[in-house]
């Protein structure tokens, strides 16, 4: 680990001031950044501890929830309002990592966690455009079981590893950011980037930008929602595929729907093609599969992940069927 200076911020203004500069980074629960520093994937010279900033989960005037970025994953998952009004978010968080990690990890940190591509982690022995721009991508022709099938580029085929973010994408969450130029918000779906020719940039945030909160807008459809994660062991593994879905039925017809996929792209993948294909349709296996087919029509599987479009399709169909029946709380 490169030597660094540890600073603790007691206010957002402090944090933004202390965290300015290319070599600084914000420190939440440390569950990813400490590992990245130890592996020398990251070499920050200053870490600004922002865990003492707002961790509150409060009701918004509009009837949604505002989650302080320092809230732990556990705090969000166990929050009564999240459990009852946005169950997919609780479930997504609970499907991720382990209880110990969820107790440490913050919401802000979760959004900024980096890929689990093993070539990205292999600082000495592998080429990775995300870690070292311009060096090449060893994953494209190597082990790429957990890698992207949508939206990848020649430069990078990594996936975003978060479960929570998949639900937040589906829930139309809003990210509150404090930067050098003051406060701003952006839709969650615009936070993470596709790799293009700059896979080193995971998000649109500028250096020194601090995520202060996540806002969940009121969303009736979310009350009937869930998260299903498919992985290589029963627990404590990153997703091969995950589906966050919410549905509102009007009799047998799908009145409204929200869908996002994890494990398929460089960002949590909002299913912008599948959703319109479902709205107003009669719920059926065929309709579910057709919606998935629309979403994955452009899928570009790699050596080890050719199973993903079919797995994602089946998983989506099963989740929607269950939600349509009302079996999921």
């Amino acid at each position: 680990m490169t030597p660094f200076t540890y600073l603790r911020a007691d206010t957002v203004n402090d944090a933004v001031r202390l965290g300015a500069g290319e070599t600084a980074a914000f420190l939440g629960g440390g569950t990813n950044i400490v590992d990245l520093m130890r592996e020398t994937v990251a070499r920050h010279e200053t870490l600004v501890d922002v865990t003492r900033l707002s961790a509150a989960v409060t009701e918004t005037a509009e009837g949604g929830l505002l989650i302080g970025a320092a809230a732990t994953n556990t705090a969000v998952a166990e929050h009564h309002g999240v459990r009852t009004r946005y169950p997919m978010l609780s479930r997504a968080i609970l499907a991720g990592a382990s209880a110990q990690i969820r107790n440490m990890a913050t919401v802000g940190g979760n959004l900024l966690q980096r890929t689990r591509c093993t070539y990205f982690y292999d600082t000495d022995g592998s080429h990775c455009n995300k870690r070292a721009p311009g060096t090449g991508c060893d994953a494209r022709e190597g082990f790429n079981r957990i890698h992207a099938i949508l939206g990848a580029s020649d430069a990078c085929v990594a996936t975003h590893p978060s479960d929570m973010c998949v639900a937040l994408t589906a829930l139309d969450a809003v990210v509150h950011v404090e930067g050098r130029d003051g406060a701003r918000t952006l839709p969650f779906g615009e936070l993470h980037r596709l790799p293009g020719d700059r896979p080193d940039l995971d998000t649109v945030l500028a250096a020194g930008d601090l995520i202060t909160a996540i806002e969940l807008p009121p969303l009736g459809v979310a009350a009937r929602s869930t998260y299903r994660k498919v992985r290589d062991r029963a627990s404590y593994a990153f997703a091969l595929i995950s589906v966050a879905a919410a549905i509102e039925m009007d009799g047998d017809r799908i009145a409204d729907v929200r869908i996002a996929f994890g494990g398929v792209a460089h960002k949590p993948w909002r299913a912008t093609k599948a959703e319109p294909a479902l709205r107003g349709e009669l719920a059926s296996e065929a309709v579910f599969r057709a919606a998935a087919a629309a979403e994955f029509a452009d899928a570009r599987p790699l050596r080890d992940n050719a199973f993903k479009p079919e797995l994602a399709t089946r998983t989506l169909a099963a989740v929607l069927a269950e939600l349509a029946k009302g079996d999921v709380a």
């Binding site: 540890y6 420190l27 110990q100 990690i101 107790n103 440490m104």
Partner: peptide, 18 residues
């Protein structure tokens, strides 16, 4: 795993200064 204020965490990912 250790307990911090009664909550279980992973001490390997915890910077002691925090």
């Amino acid at each position: 795993t250790v307990l911090v204020d009664g909550e279980r965490i992973l001490s390997c990912l915890a910077l002691a200064v925090q």
